[in-house]
Design a protein around this nucleic acid. Structure first.
Lengths: 114, 114
DNA sequence: ATCGTATATTCGAAGAAGCTAATATACAAT
DNA sequence: ATTGTATATTAGCTTCTTCGAATATACGAT
């Protein structure tokens, strides 16, 4: 099959986003960088677990980090990623009759994110 | 954590695309519907395997199918999905210094897909 | 040097996803 | 009714993912 290594690359990217916590991380970083600690607090998951998810996102170059003293600040590497999620938002919105509970969440999210 | 079921939904969607063969399927269906047989031939994978991947895409409503006699024709359900992949293409193109072999593939793919 | 805080890594268990081979279903044609 | 073709499903195995608990590293403060 041609284009195969390219498709592996694409699949890896999708795989990186294929977890609710990792989506939450990217969405939290929407407005700018946050420390690992701040992320963990907002995510409400185990420290080790969050760190593992950050490792996944880092390894696929979806987020980047910089160290400041004791802390590590994360941010999304490329605004295109946020844009991808925005296009997807339209998609999800168009098809959310397939899960009514989420529609309500979606509306309040719309208020938050504009 | 709020928005969580929505994020599960999104994650499921990404998960559905997190495999090279399934990406290939969606890309093959770009120009219109194809029978399962035609897909399998172009994919060059085991019949059962392709069928399983189609089941995954169907279960996440990414593709739909219609039966015609003996055959089953698949198509992408919503053009937005193709659009998502197009935005991603820009993303991949912007970051493909991380895998040089793919850049060449990408260029020939650009010829094919315009 | 020691202690505390922030973050990362490793390990082992549990579950999910993927593959192939085999079997099943559905329809067409004879 | 039987046979052939197209597609789907199941079973068993292997590999990948995720998690929490424990441990390690890095840095700052005392």
């Amino acid at each position: 099959m041609p284009h195969d290594s390219l498709r592996r690359f694409k699949a890896d990217f999708f795989q990186a986003l294929a977890h609710p916590t990792r989506i939450a991380i990217v969405e939290l970083l929407r407005e700018g960088e946050l420390s690992a600690g701040a992320l963990i607090e907002r995510l409400g998951v185990e420290q080790a677990n969050a760190s593992q998810h950050l490792t996944v996102l880092r390894s696929k170059h979806i987020v980047v980090n910089r160290k400041v003293g004791n802390q590590v600040f994360y941010s999304v590497r490329d605004p295109l990623i946020t844009e991808v999620l925005d296009v997807m938002r339209r998609y999800f919105y168009a098809h959310l009759t397939e899960g009514q509970a989420m529609l309500d969440e979606m509306k309040s999210e719309a208020v938050t994110l504009g």
